[in-house]
Design a protein around this nucleic acid. Structure first.
Lengths: 117, 117
DNA sequence: CGTCATGTGTCGTATATAGTACACATTTAG
DNA sequence: CTAAATGTGTACTATATACGACACATGACG
């Protein structure tokens, strides 16, 4: 589908240039999966792994978990839970912001962060 | 798990009081599933149906699809796609708003809707 | 030059997801 | 009273998800 695998491979190989601990085998071991499985993931031979595995992989590679999950075609379970608790509210908000430029969304984020509520 | 089934049953039975077309069989047929399956869904004997089926069911019962999806433990695919396109931005926004009261979120929604961007 | 680590091919598996098909007892309506 | 409609029990299935186990050829390096 998308470039989840190649992205992961790229990141891992870059890290590997100055740290031999970033081989397929060693990363797989630290992440808690089989090396063969990680190899297949990186080559796109299988679908991206589960959310939990993706998050551990992101941590290992120093990546933002939400970004890696997005590449895997997923949305973090905790975000989904927040939405599910107030579906109408969040559905409307998110659809409103669909076409908004990044900086407009960022303004909203900051406003909420500094907000007085 | 949750009360997806009993909620659907309640809504359907209420509709049925003044419209005989809201039997399990007839609703199932219009939704495009087997009556036995709808029956099991309503009694919670099986997990809530797929997103597509849930959405058709919501339409048939005059419900907000996002709300019914939430009861089914899901988040609409189109919302997920919006988030996946800008994961960092939306992840931060949504987590910021997790604890915000409804009216604060609503204010943001309105602000964005009337926004000048 | 031998050994150790590396990446990958092949095969298999357990669980979840999303239903269908059919029969049957009960209820409802003309 | 009977014919049609109703709700549901039982059994089955196809596909997807998410991996593990093991072996093997190749390459690096001390």
């Amino acid at each position: 589908m998308t470039q989840f695998g190649s992205t992961v491979r790229g990141i891992r190989e870059r890290l590997r240039r100055d740290d031999r601990r970033f081989s397929v085998r060693q990363v797989a071991q630290r992440v808690g999966i089989e090396p063969a499985y990680l190899s297949k993931i990186e080559r796109g031979e299988v679908a991206p792994p589960s959310e939990a595995t993706t998050v551990r992989l992101a941590a290992e590679l120093g990546q933002d978990p939400d970004v890696l999950l997005a590449l895997a075609g997923k949305v973090s379970g905790d975000l989904q839970e927040i939405i599910r608790k107030r579906p109408r509210l969040f559905a409307e908000l998110i659809r409103q912001l669909k076409e908004a430029p990044d900086d407009a969304v960022l303004r909203v984020v900051r406003e909420v962060r500094d907000g007085d509520w």
